[in-house]
Design a protein around this nucleic acid. Sequence first.
DNA 1: CTCAAAACCTTAGTTTCCTAAGTATAGGCT
DNA 2: AGCCTATACTTAGGAAACTAAGGTTTTGAG
Lengths: 140, 140
Amino acid sequence: MIHNKHAARYVSKLSNKLRRRIDAFSCRDRMSGAEGRVLHFLLTQQGDLFQNDIEEEYSLRPSTATELLKKMEHHGLIRREPMSGDARMKRIVVSEEALGYRQQVLQDILQLEEELTRGIPEKDLDVFFRVIEQMMDNIS
Amino acid sequence: MIHNKHAARYVSKLSNKLRRRIDAFSCRDRMSGAEGRVLHFLLTQQGDLFQNDIEEEYSLRPSTATELLKKMEHHGLIRREPMSGDARMKRIVVSEEALGYRQQVLQDILQLEEELTRGIPEKDLDVFFRVIEQMMDNIS
DNA sequence: CTCAAAACCTTAGTTTCCTAAGTATAGGCT
DNA sequence: AGCCTATACTTAGGAAACTAAGGTTTTGAG
């Protein structure tokens, strides 16, 4: 290794700072941190989504995902519909109420993204994304 | 925003995967996740370290850091010595026992780092580190 | 039909983190 | 000296996140 910097530590540190920042989001008084993150994921993803996808996206164990989604369902953020074709799977659907937060959530994320990437050249961001993708491949 | 990729999500996702990976480290059966992370930090840092530094590094509240360090002390991983000059501060010292894990911890980290950066050009890593540093500045 | 695997759930316990309110010390400022 | 604010850390209590181990039901392959 030539670098004296540790990529793992850098990434973790930035991620922790981000968690802090995201906890200050406006909608946060109506849902927990994890619930907010998952809601944002649901709102920006297209196509059918299942518990499986949540587990993969956030590196969660099935039981953790179950508990989290159950809580979101109880809070009225999502519904879970049986999937025709495979009775084991339940499709996750964002509720009407949660769709009302959509604008705010997207706005918050957009603002964070702009703040985060301020002063960073486009080509550097391209490299950054490429490196992260490679790293995710490397350890998966 | 020109990118359709979200830097925040990318970083969080990689960080989660890393946490999983690090939890599988060999010494991990003798300490919890957070304890292991802090121990690694202590072992690779030079100069006096205080609770303050742990809070900053991991974006923790004082009470969280207190609890974590108290647990590490109880598990025999660290000691806390009164600081001459400022009676409010207590210096964190890695115990003899924990120093025994040193080689293993450093080895684990080095291996992860090599695995993580495999196939990524040196100059891309330079950009990567620069971008992360800028992002940390941007949101602090 | 049988059986392994997949998708998800349940339970019970641990770990991590937070808020809110404290103690004690330090370093001003008048 | 006395007062005030900030700093460093602590305590108490609770919420959130995670884990391991063991279900259920359904699927799909042999």
